[in-house]
Design a protein around this nucleic acid. Sequence first.
DNA 1: GTCTATATGCTCTAATTGAGTATATAGGAG
DNA 2: CTCCTATATACTCAATTAGAGCATATAGAC
Lengths: 322, 322
Amino acid sequence: MGGQSGIEIGLNAAIVGVRDGQPHILVTREGNGWDALPYGPFAPLDHRTLDIGLRNWVREQTGLELGYVEQLYTFGDRGRHAQRGDTGPHIVSVGYLALITEDPAAGPGGASFARWFGYLPWEDWRHGKPAILTDEIEPRLKRWAARPDQDDTHDLVLTRRERLRICFAMEGADWDEEKVLERYELLYEAGLAAEAKRDGREAVKFWDKLPQLGRPMQFDHRRVLATAMSRLRGKLKYRPVIFELLPDSFTLFELQKIVEAILGHHLHKQNFRRLVENAGLVEPTGDVSRQTGGRPAKLFRFRRDVLLERPSTGVRMKGGPG
Amino acid sequence: MGGQSGIEIGLNAAIVGVRDGQPHILVTREGNGWDALPYGPFAPLDHRTLDIGLRNWVREQTGLELGYVEQLYTFGDRGRHAQRGDTGPHIVSVGYLALITEDPAAGPGGASFARWFGYLPWEDWRHGKPAILTDEIEPRLKRWAARPDQDDTHDLVLTRRERLRICFAMEGADWDEEKVLERYELLYEAGLAAEAKRDGREAVKFWDKLPQLGRPMQFDHRRVLATAMSRLRGKLKYRPVIFELLPDSFTLFELQKIVEAILGHHLHKQNFRRLVENAGLVEPTGDVSRQTGGRPAKLFRFRRDVLLERPSTGVRMKGGPG
DNA sequence: GTCTATATGCTCTAATTGAGTATATAGGAG
DNA sequence: CTCCTATATACTCAATTAGAGCATATAGAC
């Protein structure tokens, strides 16, 4: 079972920012074609807490001083770090989400912004249902669902078909934008993620030809990324985290565009204004922006003191027409 | 800095059940007066995933086969495991929440049910504001807030007074039932939790006499417990997890009592019925229960298939009159 | 001045929520 | 058997919120 020399804790950061209306994450490209998140092992002698360890690694690798940071999940599965071979220590990876405003383009260390939807292209519904779903994913998932659940050791009592319905909105069900992780994991389990092939998963043998379904990542980093997207999409609706992605002053439409970029779908403009304004999340700065091409838009700033008020609402709101 | 021999990952389970209208957790009492959660180190050679490791430890220590299990958070702080001394490996602890229906009284291994509110007594508002808040906690926290924030290395820019307002509803603010962890951590930081004294925290010196504010626990287990309560109280409102605590059939009032036990406050009965019923979460079994002392109550069962429907609502609902 | 594009304001309806009143049906006291 | 009490269950009503769309305001371009 390979030389087992102990446990290592890996700290991984999905550092999210929005540029040109597109959500981006900070990745390091190491030349072997597999992008990676900023990553480093937890060293308890140097790092008083996990968070501090993460911040240190990110500072070291990207020159960035993180602000908003949130722990996501700890993954300990065997077999998700196949590149390392069987010899190293077992790696337990702790995923983090960080949100930044500034554009780290100038940062050292070879880290750069990459489009988030490049890794999970089926998650962007802003221009309607992504073609990759209809053309590539759905037909293959249907074939997968038609197979018996032999090698499934899933503890849920759901059939593959039911899981497709829930995760991928297959039989008339609604698309749940928050199920990002469940979708990625299902694709991995079905052998349709490149990482599954790398890790030597059995299900891959079923496919004669594997399309590239989103850019893969090193280790289990795409899983961390999917977890980050799930969490952020959910949290948006009940905590005012979105402002961690915005500059000090912004128009309401800029705010809306950023929310849409994260959620991956369009919102109803007038209702969005109403919601944000009478949730008391923002206050006008008094200035206007004339960059809009029409009537100048009032500039707003985030009211930091809402963090002191009770169940600070965040930006809920269901989808609107395209 | 003590002999550092590596990292160990501890798996801790807050196993919750409701008995006689009181939420309980499974604890092991080891005789030294410090209760502990079922606990064991993650052994990657034996456990394919963290979850499996946790289930194994719980089975071994309590004879219980867990159903619903959910990972909570991973804590890596130095200095929260003081009993172990400085010599052992650094311990990173992964907390889990598990929900059970059956009463594990007969289980082997010395584990037993203990009242959840015995550890966090300020969280039970079902009979009005707990006296321990007014009599013990609030006056001391006010004294603590009056001190300068010298040794605070908190990354938030909130003053102690603002934090009290938010966490403990001090200056007319509302009590947020979900801030269980924040409250416990604040008490720890203020030196008011017995664990803070055990861990040699500086703030403890400020107090001449420390009252027992809830029963303490071994290691950072009370923190895990507080995290579990936070998570469960939050999740209740948007996922139908509550049914993991209920028998197969139940009356709506029994359901309500269990929700109230978890949330720690009363709900409006008629509205609760309406909500649960037209969320489609339950269906009548056809039988009735005559145990109620009045008109017999219809028995219901959880509609397992709502898990297949979209954003399965759970049991939201704000508080009602006492 | 008109056209176009965007920002912002307002209306209308349907649900949802919070609170309370009214009715139904058991067991027990007399 | 009847009344009383306790609980379950049904229904009402006002306030708020959410989804959708129409209307008006104000810039730059021609």
